[in-house]
Design a protein around this nucleic acid. Structure first.
Lengths: 332, 332
DNA sequence: CTGAAAGCGCTTACAG
DNA sequence: CTGAAAGCGCTTACAG
């Protein structure tokens, strides 16, 4: 069998199967539309030539790329990992390839990544990164579906799949009060969403309890080791807090370790709460009380929206609230 | 200003700037090759139209996609995260977009993802996933550069950037002996590379020490919580080990926590070693002795190879050994 | 430094 | 169910 040096094309397959390129194209995209014996000849021709469709050409001709851009702030030590992993897997299953971009906290970086995505004519952009006005406009003009995840902005550009961070902050405050804690200390990552939870916590706390909570802010991405500094700050307080509300499970774990190595018992001497319900939260000793967000559901809803968008039907809601649940465990 | 409903094309820009599409194309790809005043007119026309190049068309015409496929086994709790994050960032900086695929341990899944990548005509595939014979052939035929990372196979398909897992296993054994440990217990993730380190450890141990190490195997991806089961297995041993050699820092951290919560002191009653030098290893209490692999360097070398491949010059070496370093800290 | 034109490899109305 | 043909939006030798 002679192999051409170049990649085999639809034309090569068509000649071999003695049909037109149009028929081969139809077979590749939906095998059921061609006659059974034709299909068989094409199948053989594809196997013999080792044909691999050129999606660049296919995408250009059909103006759909079967590609989705996923933009996340960080990869390491991230609360998003479960969501992202589910996203990438489910997108693949749905026949969509994923372009990954890491935005950090930079709106400029996000803009560049969105331009890259649009230049590939992606079917959708799934993003949890920061947007400036220019980027919003860019996205609004584009035919790609824009999906914001992990938050529910008042006026989403396309659709949003997430939950209310304000509601989460409020519920955490109520939980802390119901458990009898009096002196909360908040360790917040320096990001918009974490700040929104913190502010809602403070507002609710002032409403239903007394005394002003103390605060620490840590850099983003919130790392395990940041807990050390936050713990040191707490120790310098005139009165030691009785519960630490952390912006992530990683921080919570770090705080538990710091507290224990300072001889404190968790939760008796100091209670600790996390956020995100990562696998580690349930596996730590003591197990960590945290807030669960269904990352896989976020992924599923986003993909369902893309699928319906591709069929031309707009998703029936622009804001999809997946909610959250406080999971009470040993640490608080 | 009237906006066409469709995306503006090179043609729209060309008309507005009163030049040919060829000139606009040249400007977009290398602004320096057009005359300064022409460049200025084109720049304005691009701004006015909001032109975003269609890389599908560009890639088809030039037969280079400026896109690289990155294939990894897992995202969550992974030792690879630093490498992947560096990879994605550095690729973006180099003007290459990344297509991400998650292979798990499945060679079939890997094959599908490689087919997807080839159908997008990626410039390179960077992979640390498992390959079957068919996939190897697929890749060999393709003009894309194939880069295997995190290992150094005897006969790489394209090039490989990684380190010798056998050498790492051997050096870990020597380290354990030099520290005076007598009864090592190995906790190994159920993956080819971890097994290679384990086997080399065992071979070396038999050579330079006495007594047969005990073993636990945990599922992949190795999770924090697996440590609990491994620790329980150890406790049932006739004689308690004096050092646990873990396949990842995550496992090591889990073991430290288990040991401590069972009242053992680390390292006095039980020493623990990790692998990978994640951020957590240096931040844990006690800090964890581990093996450092320079993930960012792996990313850099891979990208350098792609760059030189694109210039037509083959990389000068097919095997790039980035080595590893044992980092002695408090835990062992 | 610039333009006219062929070509990249597909898809898809249109016609049969 | 199938084919002929136009078209998707670029790039790039070739010529000037």
């Amino acid at each position: 069998m002679t192999m051409p040096a170049r990649n085999p094309t639809l034309e090569d397959v068509a000649q071999r199967a003695r049909v037109s390129t149009a028929t081969v194209s139809r077979f590749v995209n939906n095998a059921a539309v061609v006659a059974p014996d034709t299909a068989e000849r094409i199948r053989e021709a594809i196997a013999e030539t080792g044909y691999i469709p050129n999606m660049l050409a296919g995408g250009l001709a059909s103006s759909k790329s079967r590609m989705v851009s996923v933009l996340i702030p960080h990869l390491s030590d991230s609360m998003f990992n479960d969501t992202i992993e589910a996203m990438v897997e489910d997108l693949s299953t749905a026949g969509l390839n994923v372009m990954l971009g890491i935005t950090g906290v930079s709106a400029e970086r996000t803009e560049q990544l969105i331009r890259d995505a649009l230049s590939r004519r992606v079917d959708a952009v799934i993003s949890s990164g920061p947007l400036n006005a220019e980027t919003r406009e860019l996205v609004r003009r584009s035919p790609a579906l824009f999906i914001q995840i992990w938050e529910l902005p008042a006026d989403p550009i396309g659709i949003a799949v997430g939950f209310s961070h304000a509601a989460a902050g409020r519920d955490i405050a109520r939980f802390a009060v119901s458990r009898g804690y009096r002196r909360p200390h908040l360790v917040t990552a320096d990001g918009a969403r974490a700040m929104e939870r913190r502010d809602a916590f403070l507002a609710e706390w002032r409403e239903i309890a007394s005394g002003e909570p103390s605060l620490s802010t840590v850099d983003i991405p919130s790392r395990f080791g940041h807990a050390r500094r936050a713990f040191a700050e707490m120790r310098r307080l005139p009165q030691m807090p009785d519960v630490v509300i952390c912006g992530s499970d990683y921080l919570a774990m770090g705080l538990v370790i710091e507290a224990q190595s300072a001889g404190l018992r968790v939760p008796d001497d100091l209670a600790v709460m996390g956020f995100g319900n990562s696998a580690i939260a349930g596996e730590m000793r003591p197990t960590i009380t945290t807030v669960d967000v269904d990352g896989r559901r976020i992924a599923r809803e986003a993909i369902a929206a893309i699928t319906s968008h591709q069929k031309g039907t707009l998703p029936d809601q622009r804001l999809i609230d997946v909610g959250f649940r406080i999971i009470a465990r040993e640490s608080a």
